[in-house]
């Protein structure tokens, strides 16, 4: 654990390279979208970060269950890592979405199901960290954290469903067109290349950061153990 594994170093380098390629594809290779112009280019990173954000939250809920079954604190560290990395990516998603919405829908924020659910999900996992911070006992912290990620993981999709059902009955109208109509566009094949490459890129980056964060958690645990040992 002390020395950085070679695979991780390779993954670091690969992450940087694919990120650079992905940025190139998104910023220069993909054609400019006709209606929204340049700002549509944030779409690639927007969806990429959203994808890994969701992946991480799902993963956190699963590791939460694994922790509750095995009671092995290792899984708690994996869970925290997943939530933290996802929180960062989801933050990027929301900010990019907001930046995209400004010129496209003429507003920074719409109470559209996806945006609202994203914000609520972000709040759930911020609350998760607040919960963890106010518990000292590591075992209890892990248990409560696992229960809460489980609750959050189930509640978030229901929230999305509920909002979507009601917004379809009462569509949000911005300007003259509905949000859905104005946000949509057809992807050309070049756009698809940039799009799928962005998904791939963020998956790689996610795995990389996730790994680093787990190692950080392990280190934290080790320091904690030693501190207890020395103070005794």
């Amino acid at each position: 654990m002390q020395s950085k594994p070679l695979a991780l170093t390779i993954l670091d380098v690969v992450s940087i390279i694919v990120l650079a390629i992905s940025a190139y594809l998104a910023l220069f290779f993909a054609p400019t979208e006709a209606v929204m112009g340049q700002v549509q280019r944030v779409f690639y990173f927007h969806v990429g970060t959203a994808w890994v954000g969701l992946l991480g939250f799902l993963f956190a809920a699963i590791t939460g269950i694994v922790y509750l079954v095995t009671k092995d604190l290792k899984w708690d560290r994996v869970e925290v890592a997943a939530v933290e990395v996802s929180l960062v990516f989801f933050f990027i998603t929301i900010v990019l979405g907001s930046i995209w919405a400004r010129p496209a829908w003429n507003t920074w924020w719409t109470w559209d199901p996806r945006l609202t659910t994203a914000a609520i999900t972000e709040l759930i996992y911020i609350a998760y960290f607040m919960l963890r911070q106010s518990i000292e006992d590591p075992e209890r912290r892990a248990r409560f954290g696992a229960v809460y990620t489980l609750l959050g993981g189930i509640s978030a999709p229901i929230t999305f469903m509920v909002i979507r059902l009601f917004r379809t009955i009462h569509p949000v109208v911005i300007g003259n067109q509905s949000a859905a109509a104005q946000g949509g566009f057809d992807m050309t094949s070049d756009m698809k290349v940039a799009f799928f490459f962005a998904l791939f890129t963020f998956t790689v980056i996610f795995v990389d950061l996730f790994w680093h964060r787990i190692r950080l958690g392990d280190l934290q645990d080790k320091v904690e153990q030693l501190r207890l040992k020395v103070s005794m």
Binding site: A34, V35, M36, I92, V95, I205
Partner: peptide
């Protein structure tokens, strides 16, 4: 509200990418 010409929204795009990279960098 369809516009005939492509609107210039590159400012937003740049801001978006700057924020994305800065956030990842900070993390």
């Amino acid at each position: 509200m369809f516009l005939e010409t492509i609107p210039d929204t590159s400012g937003y795009m740049i801001a978006g990418y700057v924020i994305a990279f800065v956030t990842m960098g900070i993390y």
